[in-house]
Amino acid sequence: MKPALIQCRGLLVGYEGRAVLPPIDVDVRAGSFVVVAGRNGSGKSTWFRTALGLLPPVGGSLVRADSVRPTYMPQRMRFDDLTPVTVAQVVGMGTLRGWSFLRPGGGAQAAAAMERLGITSLAGRTFRSLSEGQKQKVLLARIVASGANIALLDEPTAAMDHAAERETLEVLASLHRELGLAVVVVSHHLAAAVPFATDAIFFDPDAGQVVAGSAREVFRHPAFLARHGELHLG
């Protein structure tokens, strides 16, 4: 079994010291592809943001391995369109870690990442002028440029039609396969994401439970079946 990059034991997540979910026990392992499911307001984004270190845990234990090198793809509305950064700049941001912005570099990694995603021709365009599908490719290129070993993506296909959604998930799956990247993806469109999943986490606030484990276990769990019915697991 591969080592855990993120380990939650009895983790309580929430706001202002108040937990919004029961204790969570989850391991996100190197090389896994984890689909995070649950309806709006189920607390999945709260867990997600806690795991990323953007929110402090309310209680329990959250351990991130020393080797963890995370990157993140926020929801699209979190980008401020007032800032006219170019595609090359956005991809280049992926190469920055800690205080590395103080010295030049990262251009070659960014160029290689853009080439891999087939967006070199967009390098000089502003990010805000792109279509949703192009923006997602740019953000995927940023993940590649980051050299991360775990990528957490918050509803990356929310504004896409089925074809673009499928294409994005396939790119993500290829990064997972070829780079050994652990992927944790929040998705409402389970039918598209499930075929790629090795593991899953299901947040069910009505039943007051969080189900985590292999994709097969979670998607056949009675709590999940009661909400979503049977899914084709591939």
């Binding site: 990157t71 993140y72 926020p74 800032t83 941001m93 920055l96 870690r97 205080w99």
Partner: peptide, 16 residues
């Protein structure tokens, strides 16, 4: 520029 454009990812990448 990174922190101004996408503060959360900058924090995840450990930028101050």
């Amino acid at each position: 520029v990174f922190a101004g454009f996408d503060e959360e990812t900058a924090r995840v990448h450990g930028l101050p």
